[in-house]
């Protein structure tokens, strides 16, 4: 049995018939072919799958596509506007905050949500707020630097 799910993803309205057990991340990756959002664990801990639903960060592996019915979803693919990178994307590149790049989409989406809630975060706040995102490459040093730089850029 399938159900029809409609949501707005990166500004585009999309409708698909899916099994009710379809997770939002599967909807994005498999039904929409948007593979920027990744899956790195099965226990909702790694954060590679973080997207924004109605403006706040969630783990798209721990929400059914059906629960996002009618929602506005933003993924890493939707951050750059008119060919211009989001300041947080720019900060990640400038500060070498990524190596293999696998955790990066989720990390950037979490970082943007973090800064929306804490426009001027301390290093300690950044480290604590990234609790839901694992990175195995960078040792977090440059991610923390990038988030602080990104926050500054977002403050303008």
């Amino acid at each position: 049995m399938t159900i029809s799910v409609t949501m707005t993803v990166n500004g585009q309205s999309v409708t698909r018939d899916v099994e009710p057990r379809t997770l939002l991340v599967q909807f994005l990756r498999e039904n929409l072919g948007m593979t920027g959002t990744h899956v790195g664990c099965d226990t909702s801990q790694c954060g590679a799958c973080v997207v924004h639903v109605n403006g706040t960060s969630v783990k798209s592996c721990t929400i059914l596509a059906a629960q996002a019915q009618g929602a506005k979803v933003t993924t890493v693919e939707g951050l750059a506007q008119d060919g211009k990178l989001h300041p947080m994307q720019e900060a990640f590149r400038e500060n070498h905050a990524l190596q293999c790049g696998f955790c990066t989409p989720g990390m950037i989406m979490s970082a943007i949500d973090l800064v929306q809630r804490n426009p001027n975060p301390s290093e300690e706040t950044v480290r604590h707020e990234l609790e839901g995102n694992l990175c195995r490459c960078t040792g977090y040093h440059n991610i923390v630097k990038a988030v602080m730089a990104g926050a500054q850029a977002m403050r303008g």
Binding site: S44, V50, S57, K59, T62, D113, E129, E131, G132, N133
Partner: peptide, 9 residues
């Protein structure tokens, strides 16, 4: 509780 993403849901 949990992490920011868990708290949002």
């Amino acid at each position: 509780i949990g992490d920011p993403q868990v708290r949002n849901m």
